[in-house]
């Protein structure tokens, strides 16, 4: 009896420390980013960093540290990706829950999950060899290294996340809702659009936000497929250079503890804050929706 109680306590504290560890790691990463980024702002003006578009720390003439063009690039490929991925994913999820027979579902689900396991370098290759030339021909451009290419590839990478989670959300809509709707004479389509999707809205939204998190942080694919020209992007058919690719390109060769080094951590900090805000917002929406439906 005593032994059991001891065991119970031990396991209790084990899980408590697990939870605490995650929080500590998160705080640690945040602190590291802040303390490594801060010394850089002795030499860089915060206003230059946040509001100027010119980034060229290894310039021949004068170093400049403005992140606006990469911030815009990141937002462009991310929203482009969501624009493609969300309709596709919700459609697929609806098909899988409503229409597909058990055989199809059994085959389709694992295939979608395999898609999540494809390494990002491989997807990057796909962008260079397949998607790029296709975009070039389709839009009549000279090359396909642009934001559209990045968006399509990131959409492919975000698909599995959004599909799986939306499907779970649609599945968890109580059967009685569907039955009631059908019994009232609504068609399957009306039931899906008017009843099921609104009821699963919070789950689907959370799925999209997680997909967005995946797209914002992705590095290798955009590094390979978007051309990485540092100029301010003018359209979706021009080259873009995201925050992640800038860090990946430059961190490998930057001398430690220089302004350039601190500035790269500053970029990382901005990226962290963005993903943090995205997650916060999705969390707030989720909770509000839960309270309403209860």
């Amino acid at each position: 009896m005593k032994m059991n109680k001891f065991k119970e306590k031990a396991i209790h504290s084990l899980f408590f420390f697990n939870g605490l560890l995650v929080v500590l790691i998160l705080l640690g990463i945040f602190a590291l980013l802040v303390f490594t980024a801060l010394p850089g702002f002795k030499e860089i003006k915060v206003t230059e960093f946040l509001f100027k578009s010119h980034w060229n720390p290894t310039s021949y003439v004068k170093s400049s540290y403005g992140i606006v063009s990469m911030l815009v690039s990141t937002l462009m490929v991310t929203f482009g990706a969501l624009l493609i991925a969300i309709p596709l994913s919700i459609g697929t999820a609806a098909y899988l829950t409503d229409l597909a027979g058990p055989r199809v579902r059994e085959i389709a689900k694992p295939i979608i999950e395999i898609l999540a396991g494809i390494p990002s370098v491989v997807i990057g290759f796909l962008g260079i060899l397949l998607v790029g030339p296709f975009i070039a021909r389709f839009f009549g451009l000279h090359n396909g290294l642009n934001a559209v290419n990045g968006s399509i590839l990131l959409a492919i990478m975000a698909l599995p996340t959004i599909i799986s989670l939306s499907e779970d959300a649609l599945k968890s809509v109580p059967k009685s809702y569907t039955q009631a709707s059908l019994a009232l004479g609504a068609t399957k389509w009306q039931t899906l659009v008017k009843i099921k999707i609104p009821a699963a809205c919070s789950g689907i939204l959370a799925a999209c936000m997680l997909g967005m998190g995946r797209a914002i942080g992705e590095t290798m694919t955009v590094l390979m497929a978007t051309g990485c020209a540092p100029a301010m992007p003018k359209s979706f058919l021009g080259s873009v250079r995201t925050m992640t690719s800038t860090i990946a390109i430059e961190l490998g060769e930057v001398p430690y503890n220089t302004t350039h080094y601190y500035a790269l951590f500053g970029v990382g900090l901005v990226l962290f804050v963005i993903t943090f805000i995205v997650n916060m917002i999705s969390d707030i929406i989720l909770h509000r929706h839960e309270r309403k439906t209860r």
Binding site: H54, N56, S59, L129, A136, H142, N143, M224, A229, S239
Partner: peptide, 27 residues
């Protein structure tokens, strides 16, 4: 003897430049 054009695509290695120029008539 000055900075590269901001519009220059920054490629990830020699082979990628070769591949890109092969495909791009304006490259």
């Amino acid at each position: 003897k000055a900075d590269y054009s901001q519009k220059m695509n920054r490629m990830n290695g020699n082979a990628q430049i070769v591949e890109a120029v092969k495909q791009d008539v304006s490259g």
